[in-house]
């Protein structure tokens, strides 16, 4: 494989000899692609940096909570000390143990803060070294992938935000129907069913030629079933079976229709206006 590649390169370079200009252009193209790759790396870093900062922020909040809790325990101890009569040895020992544990806890909190501060410092240094080049808008791919990362981790609100940004920035983008499907699924994950239906409906209406329409119809039908809108669901399922018989959703839709028919005879399917 490598040898073939080398031979190709050699042949290409021989052919390119009389065409010095073409070579220069190639160089330029290569340089441009290098610059693009660098920009992508910077964006990736920016993303990672933001995520890291977010997680550090939440850790700081947790630590503050822990510190507040420790404060409460200390208050309790001092109250106990006030109430304790000149103190038996047993009580003293318990108090000392409690204080020792608290002191250890405070030490641990301090270490974690120190470790976080160190990481934060490193990130700041790295970020500063990148300069102002980290701020340009995200490419469609990065924007989508970032939202998808939140989606698969179950950070549904962040995912909705990211996918919505994608759809509004790149409405004709290749992944706009996917983004809307994922917005709908994220709403389902948050039990916001009407919003989910709205997102799926946008795929069906605004991207009628997309291969994602059967998915949107099937998802909408399942949400409608969950919302006790059986007629609407049946209409969507029949639509899939009739209009998209070759889609993977057709088998799922037929099975769902069979289940519905077995449970209760379905009325003639006509979509009710919602």
């Amino acid at each position: 494989m490598k040898r073939n590649l080398l031979l190709c390169l050699l042949a290409a370079s021989i052919a390119a000899c009389p065409l010095a200009e073409a070579g220069t252009k190639e160089e330029l193209v290569r340089l441009q692609s290098d610059v693009l790759a660098l920009q992508n790396q910077i964006r990736e870093f920016d993303k990672g940096y933001t995520e890291k900062l977010d997680s550090l922020r939440s850790l700081v909040i947790q630590l503050n909570d822990q510190a507040a809790r420790s404060g409460l325990v200390l208050d309790r101890i001092s109250a106990a000390m006030e109430n304790t009569e000149a103190g038996t040895r047993e009580a003293d020992r318990n108090l000392l143990e409690e204080v020792r544990r608290l002191s250890e806890k405070v030490d641990e909190v301090g270490t974690r803060i120190s470790a976080m501060a160190q990481q934060l410092g490193e990130l700041k240094v790295q970020s500063a070294s990148l300069g102002p080049a980290t701020s340009p808008g995200l490419s469609p791919e990065v924007l989508y992938n970032q939202a998808f990362g939140d989606f698969v981790q179950g950070n549904f609100d962040l995912a909705i935000e990211g996918f919505s940004a994608y759809v509004s920035t790149y409405p004709a983008g290749e992944k706009a129907p996917d983004a809307l499907l994922n917005i709908g699924d994220s709403h389902i994950g948050q039990n916001r069913l009407p919003q989910a239906v709205a997102a799926f409906t946008r795929v069906i209406n605004d991207y009628a030629e997309s291969a994602k329409v059967p998915s949107a119809l099937y998802k909408r039908a399942r949400v409608e079933l969950a919302m006790q809108e059986k007629e609407n669901a049946t209409a969507d399922l029949r639509h899939i079976v009739e209009k998209f018989p070759q889609s993977p959703e057709a088998g799922l839709a037929q099975a769902e229709l069979d289940r519905l028919t077995a449970s209760k005879p379905a009325a003639p399917a006509r979509r009710k206006a919602r």
């Binding site: 989606f151 698969v152 981790q153 179950g154 549904f156 994950g189 993977p248 088998g251 799922l252 099975a255």
Partner: peptide, 19 residues
């Protein structure tokens, strides 16, 4: 059944969100 088609489907794995 979530893959109701004639292909051989196997080795499933969940995403962390379960979606």
């Amino acid at each position: 059944n979530i893959t109701n088609n004639p292909a051989i489907d196997s080795s499933p794995t969940w995403s962390p969100s379960g979606r």
